[in-house]
Structures are given as C-alpha cells and as structure tokens.
Design a protein around this nucleic acid. Structure first.
Lengths: 213, 213, 213, 213
DNA sequence: GATGAATGAGCCTTCATTCAT
DNA sequence: GATGAATGAAGGCTCATTCAT
C-alpha cells in the first residue's frame, strides 16, 4: 500500500550509502587512508557528522564496504570485457590488457584509494577479506587465458609465469603512471604492455597490439 | 669485541640514531606507518619516548630519515653489484636481477615499510624528496644496461620498454611474495624474472638464468 | 525561571561559549595565563576537556575570545556611564572616574586576567588585536572630556597630559589595590583619584568628589 | 696558598651566575616568562643546557635570583640619586622623577622582564618575597619626600595621596611607552611627569621641571 | 532519518630535571 | 666545572563514538 514511501525510504538509504562511499573514496584519495576522518567524509558528502556512523556503524565498516564496492565494480568490468571477447584466447588476452587501460571505473581517485588499502600491513587482513576472492578470480582468469593461448599457439612457456609477467607489468605501470614525478603517457604504457605480450607471444602480438590475422 | 658504551645509558649519537631508525622500520612493518607511535618506537628500541624527539626533533623527521636510510642502503647494494659485474651488459642485467632477490638489506620489514611510504598520497612528497634521486638513478642504470644489451646483442626492442617490463615484473613479485595469501616460492619468483629476461633477450637468458657462453 | 536546556547535556552554542569564557577568566585569575590548561578550564566549567576545543578550536582562540569578551564588556560600561552623564564635561569626568571604581563587570578575576594578558611580551600582539580599538576609543574619550573641561573651565593645561595623569593614576591604583601586600581601601583610592582631579581642575573637583555647584 | 686559583674559580663562578642572569633577562624579554626555557637561557649565554641547573639548582631559583638582581640594582640607582640630591625636598623629588627616566639600568629588556614577573598571579608570592622590601622602601622614600615638601612648602595635600599620584603616573607612563602601539616620546613623558608635579606643587614645579629659585 | 553537542582515549611534543662521562 | 644524553610528567589537540534532541 505504501510501497512508494517504503521504496522511497529504501532508495534514500541505498542512495545515502553510495553517496557516502563515493565521498570516502574521494577523501582517501585526497588525504590518505589514515588521515581520513569521518568528518572529512561527511563534509565531502555534504551531510552531518553523525550520519556516517548512523549508516555504517563504525569507521572500519565504512572502509570495508568502500573496499568491497571498488573491488566488485572492477570485477564487473573485466568479466564483462572477457565475456565480450568470445572464445579466442588471443582476443581474450587482448581484452584483458585493454580493459585495464580503458576501465572507466578505475578513476585516479579509486586507484589512489586502492593503493592506500594495501600500502599498510594492518589493512591487509581487511583487504584480503574484501578483495581476496575477486583478486583470486582475476588471477585465475588471466592464467587460464594464457594457458589456452600457450596451448593453442604452440608456445613453450609456463602459463603462470607468462600470466604473472604480464599482470605485474600492467599493474606496475598503473602505479608508475599515477605516482611518478615525470610519468610517461598512457599510450606509451599500452605499447609497453603489448611489447610485453609480443615478447611472450610473438606470433599473436606486436607492440602495436593484436596481430591482424 | 663488546661494543663499549653502546649498550649503556649514554650511547653515541650515531649509534642511537641508527638504533632508533631500525626500531622505526620494525614498528612500521608491524603496525603500519600511520599507526606507528613514537612510544612504539621507543619501546622497540628500549628507550624512553622522549629520546626519540631528542634525536629526531619530530615524527616527520624521524620518518624522513628512516626513508632516506633505507633508500641509500638499497642504492649501495645494487650499485655494488653492478660494479662487481664488469662491463658485459648481460652480466650486468643478471647482476641487477639477482641483486633484487638476494639483497640482504631488503628484509621483509624494510619492504613492508617501503610499501607503507608510498601507499598513501600524502606520503608521496616525502618519498620523492628522500628517494626520488636514488630511484631515478636506478631506473637510468637499468635502462642503460638494457640499451647496451639490445645494441650489442642485436635485439630490436625499445630499451626503456624492455627495462620497464623487467623492472616492474621484479618489483611486482616482491609485493606478491610479501602480501599474497598464498605466495609462490622465492625460487619461482627468480625463475619468473629470468623467464621475463628470456622472453626479451632469448639469446642471453633462459628461465634458469644467464646463458652459459 | 529555570533556564531550560542550559544545564543539561546539550546546551546552546552561545550559552556554552560564554560559560567557557567565564571559566577561562576564573582559571586565569587562579593559575595565571601560562599555567592555565584546557583541562583546568573544562573542570571549572564542569565539562570534558574535548568540549573546549570543540567550541574554540584552539587554546589561542579561546584566549583571544576571552580577551575580546572582557574588553567589549568594559567598553559597554564606561560608554553607558558617559552617555548617562549628559553634556557637562565635569559631570562626564566624574562619571568616568566613578565608573572605574564601581564597574561591576570589573571583578577581581577579570582584572587579574587582564593583567596577565599584557604582562608578557608575547601576548601583546594578541592584546592589541583584540583590545587596541577599544583602548584607543577610551583614551580618546578621556582626552575629549578633559579638553572640553579645560576649554570651558578656563584651565591652562595640556589636555592629553591631564587626561594621561588621571588615567594612569586610576589604572595604577587598580593594580596596587589588587596586588599590593598591604593595600589601602577602595574609598582611599577613590579619594586619591579625586585628589588628582582636584589638583588638575581645582575649580571643579575636591578630593571628596565633584564640587556642588 | 692557592689563593689565586681559588679566587679564579670563585670569580668564574660569580661571572657565570651573572652571565646566566643577564641571559635570563634577555630571554624573558624576548619570549616571556612562561615561554622561557632553560635551554633558551643556556643558548643565550652560550653555555650548555645542564650548566644552568648546575648553578641555580632549579628554574624557580634562577627566576628568584634574577628578580632579586634587578630589584637590588634599581634600588641602588634611586637611592644614589636621592643621596646626591641633598636635603631639599624639592630637589629630592626632582631627583626621584628624573631618576626613573634616566636610570640606565632600566633597559627595555629589564622593564619587560619586570612586567612579566607581576603580570601573573602565581608569580606574585615570589615577587613579594624578592622585591617587597625594596618596593616598600621606595614607597616610603617617595612618601617622605612628599611629606617634607608639603610641610615645608605650605601645601594642604595628603602626602601619601600626592606621592601615590606621582608614582603611579610615572610607572604608568613606563608601561605606555613600552607597550603602546603608538607611544609618545620620552620627553613628552617627562613633561607629563613634571606637569603632574606642577599640578600638585605649583610653587615648586612647572611642566618644564623644577622652578629655578 | 538527521543533527551536532559531548565524551574521553590516545598521540605528538615540550621541557625541567637527573646523571654518566 | 661542564657537557649533553636520557627520563618522564604534562599539555594541546584530534577524532571515533555516543546520544539527546
């Protein structure tokens, strides 16, 4: 009967939570995880101080939910890209590489916040709890794609090692791009990623990208 | 044999400072940069908390000097390894790779502390100030070695990209080894590093290491 | 009759601020400006120490606002007395003299606090910032009254000097009354003030006060 | 036998103490009584930190001796001026007035330090203990001179009141000269002091000074 | 739902004092 | 005599959390 009001309240609740999470990400990016205060978050969200605890009970829970939110969002992106790439392992790998450089959800603020979460030892249990599954899934997907490409392409590489080299090069470039004093361009980073793929899989990649045939 | 006066109530200035820096590194590794308190450091060093400020004036300066200490120590290690490797670029690259995995000064505590320093945005100015020069020098050395190997070895790679791929793979494995829930072994990491070198420089490296000839 | 909400856990902002300022004055009087701690003030006001910073942000600001509060209060008193005295300069001067000795807002605590503010060199910039205008206005008012009395009464005095002598005698007696080991009475102080006025303006004052006609 | 060495040590001792007292006065003037630290004093005196406590046992004793030093010095000055003035009360009063404005030992630093000592309530017991006798003697001398001048000059004033007015005017002008934002000149202050004397003792003083005859 | 006053634990920092050298 | 390392108490300030309204 009062559905609209109920859903209005519920919508308001969900809206507030997401609004606060976005404010949290922005605040972490600006001030760092440890310097972030609940007051900062409230100010960034344009609400009162007490409301943050009202919705998240504690600072720890706010951080946990923020982390989960980012991790889930990222997973949605790469799995969608992978699904769209079809069955060819080379196309899949190409999709995974491009995804990391094109993912619109990976804004600088989010990357900065992300980084803050696993910068410090004491955050790591929380990180593993919230992101461990997603990260594991990502690594398995990457490994799987490489395994199929090695098998189907006739390469003699250890799949996990090839996947690891590619993955870490890409992640490392993220960080260099964000935090270096004189970063190179995004295009240069992408070419480096493809150069890495080309070194590992020379019959499928060049430093310009996927080979045409 | 016994260090006179260093364990007593009045230690020399230099001794106390290094002792406090080591305690700082251990404390950062255990509690994180932001959770580290001067009292923690003092307790870890077995002195009163007032002494920390007596020697370092402020927490900020303690952190700055700690960072500088680690950065300088690391530089000494890799530059010594490079100097010992002689003129051959392949031997140099081999030395740089091995150095990262063998460097006794790169204890887990130091890596954890290192990571904490550039995990958060607000620490980065301090990081760049204390480590920027050393990092730049390291990258240039790595680039130079790759450039010579490419030139002398007849490879057709872009030196900066090859160097970057190797460098980031190695650094990335550090982090995975330390922070992953189920890490692989150090030997596996080293093999992966050589696999990366082998993919880039197949006439000089295999995934077992430097080629014999 | 009973002030609702002012004694409970949540008082209005203005009420709390004034309450804390009064507690500050009392604490300065008892312990001195430099020995006063925020905890002292909080205890005197019956609240927690965190609340002081909540309302005043810092100790410096608390002191600044306390000083301003006292200065403004004093100005209100003497300007009201002056306004009530009418146009006659002799009546005005009489009012200014009596005002200093009768001002109910100039409690011993406030005078002690006042004195503490300009006892030390480093407080003086703050003092000038908060009280400079009021003090200047007071001196100008005193000068103006003396000028008119000299002019209308046919005296041959330099107005600023006469005003200065009276002003400083009165202020000096405040201090002697408060801080001397064996002070004289308030009545004796008032008679001395009138004796000063009588020496300067013998046709208008005696040491008992304003001449009758 | 070893007298020279003994007196050498003793001289050194006395020299150090006076050196530290002068450094204390300078430091109080610069930083205020409460902000003055023993380290500041040691730095100002060019000696090590621990030496201050070695010579004065505690900060409180250093302050007490500093205060006593200044008070005794001031007393020597005005009593010498009084002794030099001879028996005439008008000449004596003239000497007392001039003394306050000419006393070379009353440097700005000392006046500032002086002021700091009785600015705060908690210093007053110390002040009275160290300076009470000298101050009392000064007031009695001033009162006595005024009493004789009133008696011999045929004035009908209450001596204590006349003395008080003069004394407080002079002291008040010190403070105004030192601490006011826009002070008047020293000459103007002296003329004001004589104007005060002239108002009280018109047959002996003008605002220019002592009458000639 | 939302606000913001209030609490209190804990941190950095200062500094008088002690004491080994 | 003199130095300066070392101690530890205490203060200002921050901030997560609670709670009356």
């Amino acid at each position: 009967m009062d559905q609209p009001a109920q859903s209005g309240r519920k919508a308001s609740r969900a809206f507030r939570r997401e609004q606060l999470i976005e404010a949290t990400i922005a605040t972490i990016a600006r001030k760092g995880l440890s310097q972030m205060t609940l007051t900062d978050v409230a100010v960034a969200a344009g609400v009162s101080h007490g409301l943050v605890n009202f919705h998240f009970q504690s600072k720890d829970r706010l951080l946990a939910e923020t982390l989960r939110f980012m991790s889930d969002d990222h997973r949605k992106n790469w799995s969608a890209a992978l699904a769209a790439a079809g069955p060819s392992p080379a196309l899949c790998l190409n999709a995974l590489i491009l995804c990391e450089f094109n993912d619109v959800s990976q804004t600088p603020d989010r990357l900065t916040a992300w980084c803050a979460f696993w910068g410090e030892a004491q955050n790591r249990p929380l990180y593993l709890e919230q992101c461990g599954d997603n990260d594991r899934t990502y690594i398995e997907a990457f490994d799987g794609v490489c395994r199929r490409l090695i098998s189907e392409g006739g390469y003699s590489l250890v799949p996990e090692r090839a996947a690891r080299i590619l993955r870490l090069s890409i992640e490392g470039m993220w960080l260099e791009l964000m935090f270096s004093a004189k970063p190179y361009s995004g295009t240069e980073a992408l070419h480096t990623a493809f150069a890495c793929a080309a070194a590992l899989f020379p019959r499928h990649f060049t430093s310009e990208g996927l080979k045409a045939d």
